[in-house]
Design a protein around this nucleic acid. Structure first.
Length: 659
RNA sequence: GCCCCUGUAGCUCAGUUGGUCAGAGCAACCGCCUUGUAAGCGGUAGGUCGUCGGUUCGAAUCCGACCGGGGGCUCCA
């Protein structure tokens, strides 16, 4: 039998080898337990895959993205096997790997309980320990239908695959894919079949190659993501290449929970959601209010410097305005239902500020000399979010946008976008976010208005502006709003989570609908282009992001209480009050703790409130005209002359640094 | 909107199979203590157990509806 020539590739090198017929990927790149699958000619394959002449083979380890996904996918299979052993009536949905884990959907009579979950976890442990092999088997459609006669959802997937060959490629999933149908058998050590599932694969060689997993939660999910379909029970799990990697991930989750803005908002007395007001509608307490005020003040200042004009508009309007804007056609279900006044006149809460700003533009004739005209407003809007999606400050029903609309000529558009992106990114950096990427959302043909040409021009202009920023640019096909494409700035926070922050949207549509015009230099009337942009998105949401980013320990310029004076005994209260007065005179938010707690307790309280500076004073300090710093990290600096202490605090605030 | 979980003092939580089970800690308030870097001590007050119905001799405990909250689906700033 002639030998095969293959290439063994690794990030470091490529080596040609001659191997006998029948050589598998495992023969070439296996041996290391961390290698779970192989990449053959760029396609992930089982290690049992038999190589052909000319193949390029690459080992895929379980600690790289593709390898992790395979481990997770295999873990999903083990879950499904466990479910069908413990709940034989369960019908299988799909079970793909996802970011940080996997899920599997099941149709069961009764939703899983927490007890079910821990029983499943145990069963999975047993299966993993047993070391069952994942064996791939190619089947015909008829064979698959026969074998999976009891699995209605799998049959549906087979039907989908058979019916729409290559038409759009849209329904490809991990169960069925590519050119052939495959079933994976889970084989016990004695070769008998423990379980099987329709699956594209690939899989790890045996269940033992799933080093760490944990079932996380259950939830309902619609079959194939549509509300019209039945709801299945989804079990979420996580899986990793090692126990340590999993532990690290679980620690990350714990850290995220500690930073949850809903928790910190209550602990730090920043805001609340009184039941009496209604779901998704927040009130800001004094400490949250002052943070918000500082955020807004700084933003206003920067907008002023950048030449924005400030406007104000009402929260409520007659329905006609949203007929003109098209919101009632496109957005009605996101709006609060109307109130009927004055013989059937319908008034709506505004879900967006743009129509109002258009009225300001249109209030009188406009000249090309006024353009670009940027109108800015902290505009509060109300959106009727479905009850299941409301979530803290990040998804509220009432929120305030730092909203601006820039009216300009087509010629000005590109430069405006350019400057805008730079402005946005710099401002976000001032608030302490500095790790960004950009996302370009393009047209959803199902949900959009306007001509193809206009969309194309707008999209291209945005793309060019984005590319100048030397940031990563990600595409989001079909993600645009109905009136135009958008760029959004995604920011990474202190623990690596990304948040969508600012959005910049081009709009050729609203100027049309509102018949906006300006008079050009040649005397003709022209239609302006409109750019929508919000930096924070919503102040509430941005507030939440910063709160989580800083874990409540705001930098001094944002901290609600910047300095707490802590007297060693009551006798030192007047001394500290004098220090506080000096700070207050310079605009510092300072309190002196005059409660009858002991000094240690006062420190603990200030520490828990995450106050950036504690200033202590007892006899020793008072005698020298000094104070002693205690910082949030527990460090201290003793005997600092009062003038120096004041200067240090002021400096930190003015430079907006974190301490 | 749909599914699951959940709702006991301002906060975190105990309350066994429905029958002195309405409790604790922290916070608040009142005293005592006068103290050098994360909880000093004592006392007082505070809840129609989310709401409304139902089952029962009897419900925080069982059932239903509604209203919050959480996790998802979907959607989105």
């Amino acid at each position: 039998m002639p030998d095969l020539r293959i290439t063994v590739a690794s990030p470091a090198e490529r080596a040609e080898r001659e191997v006998p017929q029948g050589t598998t990927a495992a023969d070439v790149v296996g041996g290391d337990r961390a290698v779970v699958v192989a990449r053959v000619n760029g396609v992930l394959r089982d290690l049992t895959h038999v190589l052909a002449d000319g193949d390029v083979v690459e080992a895929v380890r379980n600690d790289e993205p593709d390898g992790r996904a395979v481990v997770r996918h295999s873990a999903a299979h083990v879950l499904a096997q466990a479910v069908q052993e413990l709940h034989p009536e369960a019908k299988l949905g799909i079970g793909p790997p996802i970011e940080n884990g996997f899920y599997y959907d099941f149709d069961v009579d009764k939703p899983f309980t927490p007890e079910d979950l821990s029983a499943l976890d145990k069963k999975m442990q047993a299966i993993v320990k047993e070391g069952q092999a994942f064996a791939r088997r190619v089947v015909t459609e008829d064979e698959a239908r026969a074998e999976l006669a009891d699995e209605p959802y799998k049959l549906e997937l087979i039907g989908l695959k058979g019916g729409s060959d290559g038409s759009s490629g849209g329904e490809e999933s991990v169960e069925v894919g590519g050119g052939e149908l495959t079933i994976y058998d889970n084989l016990r050590r004695d070769g008998s079949r423990a379980w099987r599932d329709l699956c594209r694969g690939p899989h790890v060689p045996t269940t033992r190659a799933i080093p760490a997993f944990k079932l996380m939660r259950t939830a309902a999910a619609y079959w194939r993501g549509s509300e019209k379909n039945p709801q299945l029970q989804r079990v979420y799990g996580t899986a990793w290449e090692s126990k340590d990697a999993q532990k690290e991930y679980l620690n990350f989750l714990a850290e995220a929970e500690k930073r949850d803005h809903r928790r910190l908002g209550a602990e730090l007395d920043l805001f609340s959601f009184p039941d009496e007001i209604g779901s998704g509608l927040a009130v800001f307490h004094p400490k949250g209010g002052v943070i918000r005020k500082v955020m807004e003040d700084y933003s206003r200042r920067r907008h002023e410097e950048a030449g924005y004009e400030f406007v104000n508009t009402p929260h409520l309007t007659k329905g006609k305005l949203f007929e003109v804007s098209g919101h009632l056609d496109w957005y009605a279900e996101g709006m609060y239902p109307p109130m009927e006044l004055d013989e059937g006149q319908r008034y709506y809460m505004k879900p967006m500020n743009c129509p109002m700003h258009n009225l300001i533009f249109r209030a009188r004739g406009r000249s090309y000399r006024e353009l670009p005209l940027p109108l800015f407003e902290f505009g509060t809007v109300y959106r009727y979010e479905k009850s299941g999606v409301v979530q803290g400050l990040t998804r509220a029903r009432g929120f305030t946008q730092d909203d601006a609309h820039i009216y300009c000529t087509r010629e000005q558009m590109a430069e405006q976008l350019d400057r805008l992106l730079t402005f946005v990114l710099n401002l976000l950096r001032d608030y302490g976010l500095d790790d960004f990427y950009l996302e370009l959302s393009t047209r959803d043909p199902e949900k959009s208005v306007g001509t193809d040409e206009a969309w194309e021009e707008a999209t291209e202009t945005l793309r060019q502006a984005a590319q100048k920023q030397s940031l990563e640019l990600v595409l989001d096909p079909g993600g645009a709003a109905f009136y135009g494409p958008k760029i959004s700035v995604q920011a990474k926070d202190a623990i690596g989570r990304t948040w969508q922050m600012s959005t910049i949207q081009l709009d050729f549509n609203l100027p049309e609908r509102f018949e906006l015009e300006y008079q050009a230099a040649d005397g003709t009337r022209q239609r302006p282009v409109m750019i929508h942009r919000a930096l924070f998105g919503s102040i509430e949401r941005f507030f939440a992001v910063l709160l989580e980013h800083y874990a409540g320990a705001f930098p001094p310029w944002l901290a609600p209480v910047q300095v707490v004076g802590i007297p060693i005994t009551d006798a030192h209260v007047p001394y500290l009050q004098d220090v506080a007065a000096q700070l207050r005179a310079r605009g510092i938010r300072v309190e002196v703790d005059t409660s009858d707690d002991r000094m240690q307790k006062k420190i603990r309280n200030a520490q828990k409130q995450k106050v950036p500076f504690m200033l202590l004073a007892g006899d020793e300090d008072a005698a020298k005209g000094a104070v002693s710093f205690r910082y949030r990290n527990g460090e201290q600096k003793n005997g600092v002359p009062v003038a120096d202490a004041v200067a240090e605090v002021l400096d930190a605030v003015e430079r907006r640094v974190q301490v």
